[in-house]
Design a protein around this nucleic acid. Structure first.
Lengths: 177, 177
DNA sequence: TTGAATTTTCAGAAATTATTGAAAATAATA
DNA sequence: TATTATTTTCAATAATTTCTGAAAATTCAA
């Protein structure tokens, strides 16, 4: 393996914890993404120098994120793993899962708190802040749901347009008034 | 403190690590956000039942995220802390910082790898995947830069519009062709 | 200056998380 | 069915992260 590739894989390991998984899971993901052919668990363990059991757990984790899938290889009983789609697909998938893990639990807690009718003794200010956070998460969440349903090509156009979209909105406002 | 507020603060503690900081930093942030009046370090330590040193480190962390700021209280030498803006501002700030910590390092590593001219021995496929990741991060990053410069009101409009923006884009396409 | 109030630092302890590797479970083959 | 290949599990251990609290540093007032 080239030193460039190796340092890339190590980097993904270091970043792993910031992206929501641990070092070896990050490395495993990078290795699978940068390998043209599907890899089996033994290959992953040998390449990264980690135990077979660790690989097994890492695979489970990556599958729970919908980032990898198996592919059977003719005449081999082992499971082979490859990325679950293009880089674009994987990026989207990471966002979907992070939203689930980082926003949904808080949104549902806040919804519960704000719904509950025995809030008479909770101070007004805190309650209002909770409402604000709830609204922000809800707005962002439903925006993401919406946007996710767009066709990748259209979404890419939108991304590239950036704040230019503000101009288009103004244009629309003028036209529809 | 009401039990509702308390469980909210505990929840923010549990979520802390998913948002990029540790449990007590998460709790401290929640406590500050839900308190109408600024709090000093001793109050924070006492309320959360953690050591003074831990609070000092947590404050440093929250300041490095630009999430809190000091406010001096007349006739008191202690530092008092309050959120650095509205919930909207704080949400934005979290995104800004996470982008810095989660995307920028990878973007610059990849840029370096792809620029380097001794890639002759790095396999084509891996190099191409790196390019794809680089492009995705770059596109997303500059979109975020752009969008961040928009006025909050306009940005909120855009968020609420969701995929409706796709329709507007089509409209624009028809008009400008 | 001095000294009291306050904040920061950081070595060691505690808590948490990650990893190993051998045993158990599962799956495929003969 | 028995045998072999493969994967998973999980108790023990290792590594890492977080937290404490006392000492050092800083700040401010007299």
């Amino acid at each position: 393996m080239s030193p460039e590739l190796e340092s890339c894989i190590m980097h993904f390991g270091e970043m792993g914890s910031r992206w929501g998984f641990n070092r070896t899971v990050g490395q495993m993901f990078a290795l699978i993404v940068f390998s043209e052919d599907p890899l089996n668990a033994d290959q992953i363990a040998a390449t990264l120098g980690i135990s077979r059991g660790n690989v097994s757990m890492g695979i489970k984790e990556l599958q729970s994120w919908n980032l990898i899938r198996t592919q059977s290889v003719l005449g081999d009983r082992k499971d082979y793993f490859k990325p679950n789609g293009s880089i674009w697909d994987l990026g989207m998938q990471v966002m979907v899962e992070r939203r689930k893990r980082e926003m949904d639990p808080t949104l549902s807690l806040l919804r519960g708190q704000l719904m509950s009718h025995n809030n008479s003794d909770t101070n007004e200010y805190a309650l209002n802040q909770m409402q604000q956070i709830h609204n922000l998460l809800e707005m962002f969440g439903s925006w993401f749901d919406d946007v996710q349903r767009m066709k990748p090509e259209q979404l890419k156009t939108l991304l590239k347009l950036g704040s230019g979209v503000g101009k288009v909105l103004e244009l629309k406002d003028r036209l529809t008034k």
